[in-house]
Design a protein around this nucleic acid. Structure first.
Length: 210
DNA sequence: ATCCCGAGGG
DNA sequence: CCCTCTGGAT
């Protein structure tokens, strides 16, 4: 894909979504961190479903410690991976209270040191919470980048590095969410909706068929 | 049967 | 590299 085509690709995604943001519902920094941790192998709709009744009284890491492991497990049970996620969330809250004065850290290293927080989650937090020009590569971004030919790679890290080179600078800030929304609503995993895709003519796969 | 804003452990 | 964690949606 040529630089001009990449520019055009993001111009169209930007036009379709002028103010892209996460579809997770949150109000405090800790809630965003917790919601992203819960989103692993789960849909945002599912995460919002379990956090809606929880978040009014769960705003800080201390609130989660007060709630306790058993109650939290029960509250997120329908998400899947609930035991691992609950354990990580509680351990994460302890570290935030003990070592970060209850605040969400702003560096990749500090974030990835938290239980349950890997590179993808750290990138989402840095971008969404602090406005860093990071690109978190999740299942959607990975699929869209490889399918379109925007940036190819066999691992999430390789795709992330390819995207950082392929995305025109003015679009870096919101590239993550534009690609996510494209993957979630248009470039679906099983049945991509090429008929309504705004970048179909720029896409390597879209030209071929589907 | 496959996928969903993955991470940690072996 | 592989495996496991986990339930709901399609």
């Amino acid at each position: 894909m040529t630089p001009a085509q990449r520019q055009q690709l993001f111009e169209r995604l930007a036009q379709a979504n002028p103010h892209p943001t996460t579809e997770l519902i949150w109000h405090t920094p800790f809630q965003l961190l917790l919601a992203v941790l819960l989103s692993a192998q789960s849909t945002d709709v599912g995460v919002n479903r379990v956090t809606a009744p929880l978040f009014p009284t769960l705003q800080t890491p201390q609130d989660l410690l007060t709630l306790g492991l058993a109650t939290f497990e029960e509250a997120i049970r329908t998400l899947g991976l609930y035991r691992t996620k609950s354990r990580h969330a509680i351990e994460m809250a302890k570290i935030l209270v003990d070592q970060h004065e209850g605040q969400v850290p702003e560096t990749q290293v500090e974030l990835e040191a938290l239980p349950g927080v890997g590179r993808k989650t750290a990138n989402v937090v840095l971008n969404t919470l602090y406005g860093h020009p990071t690109i978190a590569v999740d299942t959607h971004v990975f699929r869209v980048a490889n399918r379109t030919g925007l940036a190819r790679g066999t691992t999430p890290l390789a795709v992330e590095q390819a995207l950082l080179r392929a995305v025109p600078a003015p679009f870096l800030q919101h590239a993550h969410h534009w690609l996510i929304l494209q993957g979630r609503h248009i470039c679906l995993a099983r049945a991509p909706r090429c008929g309504i895709c705004p970048i179909q003519d720029l896409c390597d796969t879209g030209k071929i068929h589907v």
